[in-house]
Design a protein around this nucleic acid. Structure first.
Lengths: 343, 343
DNA sequence: TTGAAAGCGATACCAA
DNA sequence: TTGGTATCGCTTTCAA
């Protein structure tokens, strides 16, 4: 593990200058004569000097790192999330720490521990408790990603409820369906909770009684298969299955097709997210497009800003728009009109 | 951002002791009298002191962080990978830095930059160049995850080639199939390259001519759909599609089913990984089970060990076994014998 | 057992 | 323009 052993002091000695000068040259700050600069640059080059991150961070009292906390789910959603976050962090020369709280007990503590190693944190909605969020917020800038925290903590999310209400209304009104099942666990995340609320809102707006309970499963394809099992076995299959995300919907689709049902003729299925597969399955999925990358990028940007402006007030929470995407799985004809916006 | 402002020195002053004593108490090192300890503990408690990570890291010349570098693909594979890695890192009090090199140009540089911020790095095979890997290895302990690097860099991988040969032989011999297509890009990752090699080996062992070219696509479900399009449109559809992973296989399955083909009657499809969905689709997927979490955990462990023993020789590369999982999609009857091991 | 002081590696202020 | 030096927050000899 050779080279990185060389420090400013060594370079200073080797180049016959002071450490201050080396620092100036290596950072491009201050005024340095051409001759000094050459001498220093040569030494730096020759001995392969690269400033140590820790020394620099300690002096600057800044880690140059951002934290991203999520439950640990899989799927295209989190990939997009991570990449969107990185797309802002990397150019800002901030490294990204991740923490999958998964099902761990001590996740609150771990998040707090992470806060000591980064300049700011984005927490995916529903992963840690509100008290922990509050304590976190008094240590570093925090933003809740896809969800909302306590009043004082800014958040970045999408218009889940109206979007889901819009989709549900389409099924209720345009297709005249009445018996819809909602699949997803509202207690699992704010996103799902809001979508479930929007789903029920659509019923109420039409003076209809919404289902009392959702089919509570997690957010991945296998969970959709599981939901299909529960819903399609035995007597009362619904007319349509409204899923909390596309992955569940894909699972339900697989389950339905596997049982010999025709979609959408025998069963309507809808998703949420507009994941890449949504347009590729047969039939293509009617869903709601959600700007996941933008969401995460916005979160990163928001934190970065807060880090740079320590005094400033917490940024406002922002809500990004979604887009209703009508395809075949809801029963619309292939050449359906392209849907309106989420509102 | 209140409390974290309190330092050892403050606590020392407040408790009327030296900073050395505070440090000893807060780390539980050295001998401290009961009275001192109480005084210090009280002050720590009262002012909410928590040692600063940077100060501590600088003094210890250790970051307390591990890096994980991957291409940025999605899907269950990487989720498992991250979680397996974390499962070892977190208990060791090491935070996890991630870097998705994705399609970025400067990924070699970014990995090198990451190396300055962590104590060791795991690099998923195929994400950065060998020269970069070598330079990385002289800065920090490195292990290649799912693949192999230059001779001197240890790696953790599975027996891809034999496993894929085993599966292919099953198709060739037990099912008497001859016209198989391989889907996946051997240039994309060592894993795929080895699987492609194993696929061809199986043919040669039987004195058969293997296909000259694979169907080159990426590793996600949509890529499988794409492959199905290429393979099943026009004249010469193969008898079987051997996929580089389950996600591709799922995509191919969706594509095949969408075209009205029956699987496995009209088309045999196999996967690799044994992802959760593999057992849940209809028909369930014949595949190769791969211990992804173990793989990543092993990598983390290996790095952690190397970090603790700076002098020691690089650990050996290790190869984990896989398991052949026979299900319906290869044409075996539902109650098929459970397959043997990968060897 | 306790404390003073010397680092760890880099930045930045203040003089010169 | 340059250099000396204090500082960032903590750990760890080395004496007392």
């Amino acid at each position: 593990m050779g080279n990185s052993r060389v420090t400013v002091r060594e370079i200073a000695r080797l180049a016959g200058v002071s450490v201050a000068t080396v620092s100036r040259v290596s950072n491009g700050t201050g005024q340095v004569s051409e001759e000094m600069r050459r001498r220093v640059l040569d030494a730096i080059e020759k001995y392969g000097y690269r400033p140590d991150h820790l020394g620099r961070a300690l002096a600057a009292r800044r880690h140059g790192a951002l934290g991203l906390v999520f439950p640990g789910l899989s799927g295209p959603y989190f990939t997009e999330l991570i990449q969107g976050f990185e797309s802002e962090a990397v150019p800002a020369r901030a490294s990204v720490h991740i923490l999958c709280t998964h099902l761990r007990e001590d996740s609150d503590d771990q998040v707090l521990e992470m806060a000591r190693r980064v300049d700011g944190v984005a927490v995916v909605g529903g992963t840690i408790s509100d008290p922990a969020l509050l304590r976190l917020a008094e240590m570093v800038p925090v933003v809740v990603l896809a969800g909302r925290g306590p009043e004082t903590v800014p958040s970045v999310s999408v218009d889940n409820a109206p979007a889901m209400a819009r989709l549900t209304r389409h099924l209720l009104v345009d297709h005249g369906l009445r018996d819809l099942a909602f699949v997803g666990n509202p207690d699992g995340s704010p996103d799902v909770s809001e979508r479930w609320a929007g789903f029920r809102d659509a019923y109420r707006e039409l003076d209809l009684d919404p289902p009392a309970e959702p089919v509570r499963v997690a957010m991945q394809q296998p969970d959709g298969v599981l939901a299909a099992e529960r819903l399609l076995t035995g007597g009362a299959a619904p007319q349509a299955v409204v899923c909390a995300n596309d992955e569940i919907a894909l699972g339900v689709l697989v389950g339905a097709l596997g049982r010999g049902l025709r979609v959408p003729e025998d069963l309507v299925i809808t998703g949420f997210d507009d994941a890449p597969m949504a347009a590729l399955v047969a039939p293509p999925l009617t869903t709601v497009r959600q700007p996941i990358r933008d969401l995460a990028a916005e979160a990163a940007r928001s934190i970065l800003t807060a880090v740079d402006a320590p005094g400033a007030a917490a940024p406002d929470s922002i809500v990004l728009p979604t887009e209703f995407v009508v395809r075949r799985s809801c029963g619309c004809p292939a050449e359906s009109p392209t849907g309106g916006t989420g509102k």
